[in-house]
């Protein structure tokens, strides 16, 4: 091994000190985010048409029978809250993985049509084939993977350029949205709420049957993705530079795509494509933690927080109850416009 001239101990200390400072700042931010997620989650269990104090909520969660609270908290609020957290984590992880890998904030799965693929398959499965539960999740995941492969294939022209993939993805997404619209018009008895679930995402009427597949997907896929965190960070330097650092680029990309698509698809099958959460979580996390280290965990927590807060706002801030996706959509759309204006000014091709 090449022995570089050793640097003075003081310089080594300075390097170590700055690195530790960055790492501890990051740890503080992640801890604060995690605490906020827990606090908001508990709040969603307490508030509603009837308020239950923390003590009641804890007793219900621990399995005790509390008159009134057992039903309202245990049956209605708990699955809804858990799905909000699980879906938020899934969307956050899936979104930031694509954004990191394609080095473009516009490349999130909900912008490039992957969520629409899962949504369209779920709607077709439910409305036309009367499927439910695991079957819906399965076809949603298969469709999302299929859309990912389709977009990748259409964008492939001696290598995949990020911009081309994004434009093709937006086109494919628009086609799939019209499929969803068409199928929903065929389902005459479906009400407005149900339609919105598949177009913008909703947590209304969440049951444990819907939560379970998404929860299992998160527990299985998230660790696999987190295992690739360092390799994904290296990919930010470009494929060649990453390969020169000993990263197996194609393998990393394959694992990342499959796990990220899986996470987004399972979450979408459970609650619809909650608008713009995948798209927003990564950039917000980057703004908070800065450019150092992997964004996977911070983005996942931001995703969960976004869904929880948006659902609270949608339920209680207005006279009408809005599905969570309407609220996140209102937040996300201006950011999308801002990004497009900014890249236009910078002379980017998008």
């Amino acid at each position: 091994m090449t022995a570089l001239l050793p640097a003075p101990a003081a310089d080594v200390d300075a390097v170590a000190r700055n690195r530790v400072r960055r790492a501890s700042r990051r740890r503080v931010v992640v801890t604060v985010l995690a605490v906020l997620v827990v606090v908001t989650f508990v709040t969603t269990l307490m508030v509603g048409r009837t308020f239950y104090p923390l003590g009641d909520v804890v007793r219900v969660v621990l399995g005790e029978r509390v008159p009134g609270a057992s039903f309202t908290v245990g049956r209605l609020r708990l699955p809804r809250g858990v799905l909000a957290v699980v879906a938020g984590l899934c969307f956050g992880l899936g979104g930031v993985t694509f954004q990191t890998m394609l080095r473009n904030p516009l490349a999130s799965p909900d912008v490039i049509g992957i969520s629409s693929g899962a949504s369209a398959a779920a709607v077709v499965g439910i409305v036309i084939f009367s499927l439910d539960g695991t079957a819906v999740s399965t076809i949603a995941v298969a469709a999302a993977l299929g859309v990912a492969v389709l977009i990748y294939g259409l964008a492939f022209k001696g290598g995949v350029a990020g911009t081309r993939l994004i434009l093709i993805g937006i086109g494919v997404g628009a086609m799939l949205t019209s499929v969803i619209n068409y199928v929903l018009t065929k389902a005459g008895q479906w009400d407005y709420q149900e339609a919105l679930r598949w177009l913008t995402g909703s947590l209304n009427g969440t049951t444990w049957t819907a939560v379970l597949p998404a929860l299992v997907a998160l527990l299985v896929l998230a660790p696999v993705l987190l295992g690739q965190a360092k390799n994904l960070s290296a990919l930010q330097l470009g494929d060649d530079a990453a390969a020169a650092l000993g990263v197996r680029v194609e393998r990393t990309r394959l694992i990342a795509i499959v796990t990220a698509v899986g996470l987004v698809a399972f979450a979408t099958a459970a609650c619809g494509p909650i608008a713009f959460v995948s798209f927003l979580a990564g950039p917000i996390a980057a703004r908070i933690v800065g450019p150092h280290g992997s964004l996977l965990v911070p983005a996942a927590l931001v995703g969960a927080l976004l869904v929880l807060v948006a659902d609270l706002v949608g339920q209680f801030a207005f006279d009408t109850r809005f599905p969570v996706g309407v609220v996140t959509g209102v937040l996300g759309a201006p950011y999308l416009i801002y990004l497009i204006i900014r890249t236009n000014r910078a002379g980017g091709s998008l």
């Binding site: 060649d240 390969a243 020169a244 450019p291």
Partner: peptide
């Protein structure tokens, strides 16, 4: 080691952090 023709620096990354990425194969 290889330094490719046009490697990309992630937005906002500091010099020390970027140089630290070179330690990847040792970790």
């Amino acid at each position: 080691g290889l330094l490719p023709q046009s490697p990309l620096a992630p937005e906002g990354i500091t010099v020390a952090d970027l140089v630290g990425r070179g330690r990847h194969p040792h970790q």
